[in-house]
Design a protein around this nucleic acid. Structure first.
Length: 264
DNA sequence: CGAATCACCTGATCGC
DNA sequence: TGCGATCAGGTGATTC
């Protein structure tokens, strides 16, 4: 599912294709996704100047007007091939190429704004996990909190971009049970967790993200990090570190996997 | 206020 | 073969 490494991979792919390209026509093919899609025609005639990412949001900057995009669960951008059933928006470029946004479950989002920092969905986001401010944000968020540490990691107001997969993998690498109340973790343990989170995110970015079902880079390629999961999706299989059987259970309404021996 | 639960949506999978 | 139930999960609204 698109989390930070997947969105970053898409960002890099789109940057290579779009920067310097003029948008001849931008159009929505249906009125709404998770939220209404605004009139995209103000993008027409503008040139794409930059591709940015904020948490799980992709930001396409066209001469100062920014197309804000969230991939939700199943959002993908494709170039060049034929229209598909769940295409919901189109960017037709002046050079004849056409970029299509597809999203079968429609959990994604498309919006326009002038200043992403003030966008109501982006403003509340916590710092990027790889930013220097992440440690202070995580430490403050865990203080006196009884919520499970994994839920805190996935809280976008604390750190932006961490979802179910990488939260579970970070907890495994740090040797922490995802159910542990955040407030019970010592500072040194939290530091270990943040280091583990950063390492797994960087490795996943280097691997082009993780493909479970729908996620694809813009060039259509799958990610490769799913082959390196230690716990996610491995319930019932032996832990690669100790051989114990990986367990799974609901945590905050989401499926969560952990090693009962490696994680305490 | 913090924490838990549900709704949104489609496609894949499973049991009968 | 077909069909209904279940699951997947990011986000935001609702409930406790």
């Amino acid at each position: 599912m698109p989390e930070l490494p997947e969105v970053e991979t898409v960002r890099r792919g789109l940057a290579a294709l779009l920067i310097g390209a003029r948008i001849a026509r931008a159009s929505a093919l249906r009125p709404d996704l998770r939220r209404p899609i605004p009139d995209l025609s103000p993008l027409s005639g503008r040139t794409c100047r930059a591709l940015r990412r904020r948490g799980k949001y992709l930001l396409i900057d066209a001469d100062g007007l920014v197309l804000v995009n969230h991939l939700g669960m199943t959002g993908t951008w494709r170039l060049g091939d034929a229209p598909q059933r769940h295409d919901h928006a189109m960017l037709e470029l002046a050079d004849g190429r056409c970029l299509r946004f597809s999203d079968p479950r429609r959990f994604g989002l498309l919006d326009l704004c002038d200043d992403p920092a003030r966008h109501p969905l982006l403003a509340p986001l916590g710092p990027e996990p790889l930013d220097d401010r992440a440690w202070e944000a995580l430490r403050a968020a865990c203080r006196c909190r009884r919520a499970p540490i994994k839920a805190v990691l996935m809280d976008q107001r604390v750190l932006a971009g961490v979802g179910n997969i990488y939260a579970a993998e970070a907890c495994f690498r740090a040797g922490i049970r995802p159910q542990r109340a955040a407030g019970t973790l010592a500072a040194a343990t939290l530091q270990r967790l943040l280091a583990a989170l950063r390492a797994v995110l960087e490795e996943a970015i280097a691997a082009g993200g993780s493909t479970i079902a729908d996620y694809r880079a813009v060039n259509g390629l799958s990610g490769r990090f799913q082959h390196r999961f230690a716990v996610y999706g491995r319930a019932g299989q032996p832990c690669r570190a100790c051989g114990a059987t990986i367990r799974s259970g609901p945590l905050g309404g989401r499926g969560t996997c952990w090693c009962p021996r490696c994680q305490r």
